[in-house]
Simulated scan of single mutants.
Amino acid sequence: MTAPPSATSPAAPSFRDVRGRGFSRRSTLDAAWTWIDGRIAPPSARPLPLAECGALVLSEAVAALGDWPPSARAATDGYAVAAADTLGAGSYNPVPLAGALAVVAGDPLPPGCDAVIPYEAAQAAGPVVEAVDAVAPGSGVERRGAWMAAGSPLLPAGRRLRPADLGLLAAAGHRILPVLPAPRVRILLAGGPKAGAAEQLGDMLAALVRRDGGTVEAVAPLPADIDALADAFTRPGADLILSAGRTGTGPDDVAPPALAKAGSLDFHGIAMRPGGSAGLGQAAGGPVLLIPGEPMAALAAYELLAGRAVRHAAGLPAGLPHATVQAVTVRKLVSEIGCVDLHRVRLDDGGRVEPVASPGWPGLAAAARADGFVLIGADSEGVPDGGAVTMYRFA
């Protein structure tokens, strides 16, 4: 996805404690994406058993090890026959089939047979099978190599493996595959007794991480304490850390100074709504993403920032994974210049969208009613009535 244009400076600021002061400036979404793209990469490829490869990404292209099927076989239940023996058969002229052999779909074709006549086109007359319809050579048969020939390409590098892919690869003779292991993502819920919405986030963020190819190493609630958070940021065992909550300007918004203490806080404050108090940095050599604790702000910050990081770490395309719909607006979508706005919208049967809440409206209820979201760039005051937009559809 191309970054929406932004009107603020792309440079990453040095750490500044915004508690009790507010944000004097915010970095662009472009700059945050550049930081993510430059610092996060998938781990090295590893051979894994086929059964463990579902939803992982192939690190190399895969070819067929042999023909499939390895020999001609029945494609339907019926009788294996020589097609020439059925010539002239009809309901008023049954033709005896002395060499007919009963087969089920998947059985190898017996020698001397080149077709399978279905049960509906045959009848048993005592011990003799009679054809009541003629079949052509190859009818009801899967020929050798019909699915794939030895050496033919099956799946490209970068493919995220689907369940059907595993079946295909098993049929092709593969038992071990070169894949990118799923990144281990630690989710921290920074809160304490005043957490409010923070405890709502664990299940949502874990589901989003899995959608984007990661595996959840832990979901850990923590108090609003700088030392406790700094320790969690530096503890080994995760490839990527998402910390939700305590990212704002209040006296107990301790996540940014905790990250600065544990390593580096490279960004704090992104020109986007909601989710503008998000931050990016590193601890113990690994990336850490700070997202707000308000649930809708957390969802937006995940979609536009953290999700990109998880997809990079999983070896998937970095852009938004949502299907898109081209639509027009029912009424104006109002935006704030200098800030990328994420509007939750509903799509009607006529291909028109209308907002279900403003970007600044909190809570997930509006997201649950929405069909997707529209992004408005930082250089725009909004989209007028009847304006063309791209909607990113919620899965």
Rank of each mutant, 00 (worst) to 15 (best):
P321Q: 03
A164R: 15
D17W: 03
D165W: 05
A157F: 06
G386Q: 11
E294I: 06
P292T: 04
P221L: 10
R26P: 03
E60F: 00
Q326S: 11
F267S: 04
L109R: 10
D225L: 08
V310I: 11
D37T: 09
G126N: 11
R346P: 00
L229M: 05
T324L: 08
A100V: 05
A31R: 04
S335A: 15
A72G: 04
V18T: 14
A171T: 10
T28C: 00
G106W: 12
S264K: 07
A218C: 06
G276Y: 03
H268M: 04
A370R: 12
R246G: 14
G285V: 13
E303W: 09
S358W: 09
A45I: 07
P108E: 04
P111W: 12
A314D: 06
P317A: 13
A3G: 00
S380R: 15
R210F: 02
E142T: 15
K332E: 15
S139T: 12
R369N: 14
T329M: 06
G22V: 11
L48T: 11
S264M: 08
P256Y: 11
I117V: 13
V216I: 13
I376N: 01
G263D: 06
A314Y: 05
L50N: 06
L375I: 09
G22C: 10
N93Y: 07
D385M: 12
V334C: 00
P355G: 09
S277P: 09
A122M: 10
V219Q: 11
R344Q: 04
P4K: 00
D212H: 13
G360I: 07
L166D: 07
V57Y: 08
V356S: 02
G245V: 02
L168C: 02
L97F: 12
V389G: 02
D17H: 07
A136E: 15
D77N: 12
G173C: 09
D114L: 02
I376W: 03
M272T: 12
V62P: 01
A89V: 05
L208V: 00
Y119F: 15
R331C: 03
L65N: 01
V356M: 05
V179M: 04
F394G: 02
A63I: 13
H174E: 04
R235D: 08
L161C: 02
A366H: 14
G382R: 11
A300W: 03
Y79N: 06
P43D: 04
